[in-house]
Design a protein around this nucleic acid. Structure first.
Lengths: 223, 223
DNA sequence: GGCTGCACCTGGACG
DNA sequence: TCGTCCAGGTGCAGC
């Protein structure tokens, strides 16, 4: 598994880039079980430009991302964690017109915060710690040994102590709505009306409507 | 009606350019009733360039093309026949941003197949034969006496015997879906969910959704 | 009004 | 040759 070894290399060679509150995740974890690179994509100019979308190569999308709901009118919402512990939500859709899978809403914020340029690499992992987590990282061009070094905890005051998945969802919804509208809404912390998807052992919420709300589990999707 | 006389002139001066299967359309037709030039437009560099759209001069659009639905989200679909009998579908829209009427989807294929360049002329006619038909033709720069000579029946195996409007619709839908997805779908030849528009005595189907389906007449629109 | 998001579109590359 | 994929675009609505 050459890819996997490469991941291990650049990931573990800069352990200090991991945040304090996540160091415990790696205690005693030396083997392949703890993390798995799903795929990487070198970013094209369009991926980091004004189109505000990331094209997910079809073979990776169909292998690693859920198929259920992605073709629906609004696609579905993916929640991924970066090395700082921040949760990133992206709308994940299939565009029949171009026959491609894309991340749209939320992607431009990621590009901006991580200062991504064409030629940089975005990568998707799942990490086992208790349950699995979905992880998104990046590596800047010419910086082969380090992933996700652009954003540190100093940029992400939220979630500093959010370890439980459920807690992260609540915090996330709060921040998401602040980011989106600049307005705090009363129902912010108690969403409903979404479906829960279990992916790589991680519960993901998604919904066909805008203004997502938290949830009872209704759909279970396992790889 | 000077325009009309001009049409008669260049059109009938090269009768051999008309296709065999359509020659019967002109049998016994000598008067103005059989065909009418709606308008011509000399093509600009943008009309034949990478913008993949034809701007329809507003006065012509509003006089000759339907107003109902053109400003809608998807515009509407116009089906026009060329001299070879091939049916061309174009998305016809009004762009509020530029306040112009345009043909978009389908236009670039027409430009390519007819080998149109800036300075060439595209023309729109209605022809009476039984019911009326909408017709699209072109005339290359420096070739004032001939319209639509660039494409012959040798380029258009489809529709060679499609004379009835209904038959043309079925064939057309089949081709449209082939173009869009590259996949033949079982419901291809039996569209529904579209609206029917009667324009210049010709039934036109249009729909707000992709993947159109054939239809019972629901809307009747008469000029 | 600018930016984002969205649905749609097309040409080029390539197997 | 032809279908598939995707990079690079569009207009426009909403925030």
């Amino acid at each position: 598994m050459a890819q996997h070894h490469r991941l291990q290399a650049w990931d573990w060679e800069s352990p200090m880039s991991f945040q304090y509150q996540y160091q415990h995740l790696y205690q005693g974890e030396q083997g392949e079980a703890c993390k798995e690179l799903m795929f990487e994509k070198p970013l094209t100019p369009s991926d980091v430009g004004k189109l505000n979308r990331l094209v997910i190569p079809k073979q990776h999308a169909e292998r690693y991302f859920p198929l259920d709901g992605v073709s629906g009118e609004k696609g579905l919402l993916l929640s991924l964690e970066d090395d700082s512990g921040k949760i990133w939500q992206f709308r994940y859709s299939y565009w029949t017109s171009s026959q491609s899978y894309v991340l749209t809403k939320g992607w431009s914020r990621f590009v901006k915060e991580k200062r991504l340029d064409a030629g940089d690499v975005v990568l998707f992992e799942r990490r086992r710690v208790g349950g699995d987590r979905l992880y998104i990282g990046c590596r800047h061009r010419g910086d082969p040994a380090a992933a996700n070094t652009a954003a540190g905890p100093w940029n992400t005051p939220y979630y500093a102590s959010s370890v439980s998945v459920q807690h992260q969802y609540s915090s996330l919804h709060a921040e998401e709505q602040r980011d989106e509208t600049g307005v705090h809404k009363s129902e912010t912390v108690a969403p409903s009306n979404s479906k829960r998807l279990r992916l790589f052992g991680v519960n993901l919420d998604y919904w066909p409507e805008p203004e997502p709300e938290p949830v009872q589990a209704s759909t279970s999707w396992l790889i």
